[in-house]
Amino acid sequence: MGEHDVVVVGSANADLVVQVERHPAPGETVLGSELAVHPGGKGANQAVAAARLGARVALLGRVGADGHGRLLRESLERDGVDLGHLRDTAAASGIAMIAVGPRGDNSIIVAPGANARLTEGDVLDAAPLLRSAPVVSLQLEIPLPAVLAAARLARRAVLNLSPALPVPDELLALCDPLVVNEHEAALLLGAPGEPERQARELLALG
């Protein structure tokens, strides 16, 4: 058995959060609360969640050599995530700009930054790490070629299809399980439907 229980290949973002009384209309400016900065990103969140459940976790990804990158590294290290394959990048770290309304409704804009620089070559360089782990966990906040390369190397690839994007059939066939909500399933299948029927149709895709 390998050194890690789970390898996450994915994103790390700094979440810039502002509370607002209401979301602005196009062209409108509204005042918000003090800015709060939190570590986030779908990949980093998966890695931290697995580590807190007791798994030995490594994160393969990219962050900027900037203040947000330091925040992300320090947060992940506190939760015991192995950062030996988290690379510093000349680009700024990824950020998510989040406006949260009074009822918890939010608007999110993601600037991928360093996450967009993760390459298929980065993944292939880490092939021994990926092949040795029982589970490789993936999402879509990094470039699709890197996701596909990781799925090809994994003994078991888990894909959370978020943010929802069209993906090649090969990737769907490599993933077990595929994690989707009703909107993501509808994107893959081309139309909404009942969950049971969606599940049968997704299984038919491989």
Score class of each variant (00 low, 15 high):
G41N: 00
G84F: 04
D79Q: 06
L35G: 04
R155Q: 14
L148C: 11
V7Y: 09
D5L: 11
L59S: 07
G101H: 02
A114R: 11
D122S: 12
A157F: 00
R103H: 07
A55H: 08
A157T: 02
L174T: 08
L118V: 13
L124I: 10
H23L: 15
G80E: 11
V9H: 09
D5A: 14
S132G: 15
L118R: 14
R131M: 02
A185S: 13
L124Q: 12
L159K: 00
I108S: 15
V9D: 04
R117S: 14
V9F: 07
S75E: 00
A92G: 10
G80R: 05
M1N: 04
A191G: 07
G101K: 09
G41H: 01
K42T: 02
A191D: 06
D169P: 12
R156S: 13
D176M: 03
Q19S: 14
A49G: 10
V123E: 01
V123W: 09
N115Q: 06
L16A: 05
P128N: 00
A99P: 01
H85I: 01
N181G: 06
E120G: 10
G32M: 03
L140M: 03
V180H: 09
G121I: 02
P143R: 01
L161K: 14
E182Y: 06
L83V: 09
E21L: 03
L72S: 00
T29Q: 08
L60R: 12
E170H: 13
E34R: 15
A92R: 14
P134K: 06
L189D: 06
A199D: 03
R62P: 09
A51F: 04
L202V: 02
R131A: 04
I109M: 13
R78Q: 13
L60D: 12
S11P: 12
S107P: 04
V100A: 08
D125K: 12
N106P: 15
D122R: 15
E77H: 09
V20S: 03
G64L: 01
G104H: 00
D88N: 11
R103P: 00
S75D: 14
R78D: 12
E74L: 12
R56A: 12
V18I: 12
P192A: 12
V158D: 11
A114Q: 09
D82P: 07
L129I: 05
L148D: 01
L31W: 05
P24F: 05
E184I: 03
G61E: 03
P102G: 10
A91R: 15
A58Q: 11
E28P: 08
A91Q: 11
G101T: 05
G113L: 06
E120A: 15
L53S: 06
V147A: 05
P134W: 03
L76E: 14
L130F: 05
A91N: 12
D82Y: 09
P102Y: 02
V20G: 04
A14G: 15
A164V: 02
L187Y: 12
L72R: 09
G40Y: 14
V100W: 10
L118N: 12
G67H: 01
H38S: 06
A154Q: 11
A154G: 10
E141G: 03
R155T: 01
R56V: 07
H4A: 00
V18G: 02
L165H: 15
S11F: 13
